[in-house]
Design a protein around this nucleic acid. Structure first.
Lengths: 306, 306
DNA sequence: CTTAGTGCACAACCTGCAGTTGTTTATCTT
DNA sequence: AAGATAAACAACTGCAGGTTGTGCACTAAG
C-alpha cells in the first residue's frame, strides 16, 4: 500500500523506488503483486511514468486512509506522546458516556479506552504510566490512595430496576429497596473480585436482596432478551446507560428509592502526569459535573465521594 | 493484524491457529513479530490462553479499524457490488460540493470520486461500467450523446472574480464582462483539451479577454497566496466553492454580470446501470435542484442545459 | 503430591517469495 | 535515426515465514 501511494505521489516507479530505497524492479514487482491480488490494473504505464487508472483513482483514498489508520495504530502503543489512555469500569457505565461526550467536545484529542480489573490494577497502571486516568469508585480513607495519585468525584450513576412487561413490579412508578427483597435480580458478567462485585455484595448484605451474579456475559442483547421474556427476573442498570433498545420488548425502567442506590465515579490520575489531554479531560469533567446532592442515596460503606 | 484480532477473539493462540489454518507456532511467531515491531507486549500468556495487556487493549480498536479499512479498499475495486463511482470535473467544482451533500444525506452509500480527462473519456468509462455517473457540461445536440447515455441538467455554477486587496477592481461591488478586457486573469492547472479549457477559450474569443491558463497547479493555497499578493492578477472561481479561506489576505469575491458566466453541470449515466446508489443520487439531485433561470447568463455555444 | 492435560515458546529445518543485478522493450525527444 | 527515459522480463539469492519436533510452565483432578 505504501509503495502504491508513493508511486502515485511521485508519478513514476523509478522515483518511488528511490524514495523507498529499493530498486525500480522491486517497485514494479510490488505493484504487479498488488494488481494481481486485486485483479485490477491500478496504473497505466507510459513512457514518462505511471498514471492512475480509474480503478486506481478509486483505490487511492482508501490506501491513504489505510496508512493513516496504521500510523494511528502504531502511535497508540508508542511510548512518549501517545493518545490519552483512560480506564473505564465497564463499557456500559456512565464513565463511557462521559468519554464519548469528551470525544465529541475535543475530537482533536486522540483517545484510547481500556477496561482494567479493579482499583488496585488501575492505580498500579496509573503509577507505571501505562494509563493516564481511570474512572473508579474511590476506596475508604482507611486504605487511602497513594500520595502520588489524585482523584476527584465526577458523578453518581443512579441504578434503576429493569424489568420485562410481565414482571410483578413492571407497573410500579418507583420501588423501594425494601420492596426488592425476595425478587430475583440477575446481573450476569459481574466478575468476582471487582468493585462491581463488592458493590452488589454490600447491597445484598445491607438490604437482604437476592442478586444472582452467575453466568457469563453474552452481551446486552442477550441480557435484554432474557429480562424481557422472564417474568421472575429483573436487573439493575445505570440511569444514563443508552442501549440499543429493542422495539416491542416492553422493557420498563423503574426508579429505586429509600435509599436510591448510586455508583459513585471518581477520576483518578497521577499527580505528575504531563499529558495535555489529561488537563483537557479534567477541565471537561469539571465543567460537566452537575451539583452534588448525596441526600437519600446509598453507596457502599467503603466508597467515598469527594 | 488479522492474526492479532483472531487471537483476541478466540482468546488463545491454538484456536486462532485453527481458525487461520496455520500452526500454533506460526501464530506465536506472528504475534512475536508484531510485538517486536511495536516494541510492546500485546498479550500476557497464561496457562489457559492469552489475555490482552493494557497496550493490547489500546491497540485492538485500531487493529479492527485497519481491517475494516482494508476490506473497504478491496471492495472499492471489486467488480460486482462495488461503491458508487462518480466522476467530477474538478475537486473544487460545485459537483464536488453536491457529492459531499449527497454523502451527508446518505452516509450509508459507499462512494468513490474520480476525475477523468474529458467528456469523451467519461462517456467511454460510463459505457464500459468503469464509473457509474459523471458530472459534465453536456455537448451540443449536433454531436449528441450516445443513445444509451442519459443525462439531466443539475445546476449552473456561477463564476465570480477573485482578486487581492490591491487589485484595480477590488473595490467594485460587481463587474461586467466588458470591464474585464485588458485585465490579466490567471487560471493555472487548466489542462488543454479538457472542457474547462474549451470553456475559457470560448469566453476569451467572445469577449476579448486575456486568460492565462499556463503553469502547473500548485494547489489552491498557492493560487490564493499569489492572487492576494499580485495586484495585476485575478482569477475565476465558482460561487459555491468553499475553500480554506486564508485569514488576513484581503481576498475579494466579485460577481460578474452582463452576462453572468456560468458553468452548466449535468449528470450523465448509463441507461441500464442498476446500481442502487445511482437511483439515490438522481433522486437526491432532483430534490436539491432549484429553479432554473437562464436569463442573463452565458454558456459556450456548444453547451446545452436540459 | 502426583499425574495428566493444556497451551505457548524454542530449535532446527525447509520452501518460496521479495529483493537483487543484468538486460530487453517501448515510447518519447531531438 | 539516435539517444534518453521508464518499465518489464529473466535469473539468481537470502531470508522471512512457514513447518515439525520438543520442552516448559501452569492448571485441574484424584
Amino acid at each position: 500500500m505504501r509503495t502504491f501511494v508513493v508511486v502515485v505521489d511521485t508519478g513514476q516507479f523509478q522515483e518511488a523506488a528511490a524514495d523507498l530505497s529499493i530498486t525500480q524492479q522491486a517497485v514494479s514487482k510490488r505493484i504487479a503483486g498488488l494488481e494481481k491480488n486485486l485483479a485490477v490494473r491500478l496504473f497505466t504505464r507510459t513512457a514518462r511514468g505511471a498514471r492512475l487508472t480509474i480503478d486506481g483513482q478509486a483505490f487511492l483514498p482508501h490506501a491513504r486512509e489505510l496508512l493513516r489508520v496504521a500510523e494511528r495504530a502504531v502511535a497508540s502503543v508508542l511510548p512518549g506522546s501517545r493518545p490519552l489512555r483512560v480506564d473505564v469500569i465497564a463499557s456500559r457505565s456512565a464513565a463511557s458516556g462521559l468519554m464519548r461526550g469528551f470525544h465529541r467536545a475535543h475530537p482533536e484529542i486522540e483517545l484510547d479506552v481500556v477496561m482494567l480489573f479493579d482499583v488496585e490494577t488501575a492505580v498500579a497502571a496509573i503509577r507505571s504510566g501505562a494509563i493516564d486516568a481511570s474512572f473508579r469508585a474511590v476506596a475508604v480513607p482507611g486504605r487511602p490512595l497513594p500520595e502520588d495519585i489524585e482523584s476527584v468525584w465526577v458523578l453518581d450513576e443512579t441504578l434503576q430496576l429493569l424489568t420485562g412487561p410481565a414482571h410483578a413490579l413492571a407497573g410500579a412508578r418507583s420501588v423501594t429497596v425494601a420492596q426488592l427483597a425476595g425478587h430475583r435480580i440477575w446481573m450476569p458478567g459481574i466478575v468476582p473480585g471487582t468493585e462491581w462485585a463488592a458493590y452488589y455484595d454490600d447491597l445484598v448484605a445491607e438490604f437482604d436482596l437476592t442478586i444472582e451474579a452467575t453466568g457469563p456475559n453474552f452481551g446486552s442483547d442477550a441480557l435484554l432478551d432474557t429480562i424481557a421474556d422472564t417474568p421472575a427476573l429483573a436487573t439493575f442498570m445505570g440511569e444514563q446507560t443508552r442501549l440499543v433498545w429493542p422495539a416491542d420488548h416492553g422493557l420498563r425502567r423503574i426508579p429505586v428509592t429509600d435509599p436510591m442506590p448510586v455508583y459513585p465515579h471518581s477520576l483518578l490520575w497521577h499527580r505528575d502526569n504531563p499529558h495535555p489531554g489529561l488537563a483537557a479531560l479534567r477541565a471537561h469533567l469539571a465543567a460537566a459535573a452537575a451539583g452534588h446532592d448525596a441526600a437519600g442515596t446509598w453507596v457502599p460503606g467503603w466508597a467515598i465521594r469527594r
